[in-house]
């Protein structure tokens, strides 16, 4: 079963800011997709999803999104997740603006 499992990250929105967040391997919520834990088995995915869902006081709308490993950490696959990881295309707002300031 794990053979056909597509790697995933756990993602959500932060409760107060609404910003897109990802669950890390050390149980933090990061704003950077590449810092997310890349989950490679279905069993681990179920555990991490329910861990995330239990954090209702910090994050909202927890779900699993397909991702792929890269040299720089996990990258999104679907274009919706690419937009969530970067921000809107009409203004330099959201993550792209915040990360440029770092």
């Amino acid at each position: 079963m794990s053979r056909t499992f597509k790697p995933k990250v756990v993602t959500a929105n932060a409760l107060i800011e609404g910003d897109v967040v990802y669950l890390t391997a050390d149980d933090r919520w990061t704003r950077t997709h590449a810092e997310a834990e890349l989950i490679t088995t279905e069993e681990r995915a179920a555990i991490r999803l329910s861990f995330g869902e239990a954090q209702d006081g910090i994050v909202v709308g927890v779900y699993l999104a397909d991702a792929i490993a890269s040299e720089n950490g996990p990258q999104p696959i679907h274009f919706r997740e690419e937009f969530r990881a970067v921000g809107p295309s009409n203004y330099n707002h959201g993550k792209q603006a915040e990360q440029a300031n770092v």
Binding site: N13, D19, V20, F83, R84, P88, H93, G94
Partner: peptide, 24 residues
């Protein structure tokens, strides 16, 4: 933390507050 998201969501929607892709 007194209200869960399931409890709060209908209340915020009644007041026009959605959660969208990047933000509320």
């Amino acid at each position: 933390g007194s209200l869960t998201e399931d409890e709060f969501k209908p209340l915020r929607l009644m007041n026009g507050l959605y959660l969208q892709l990047h933000a509320y």
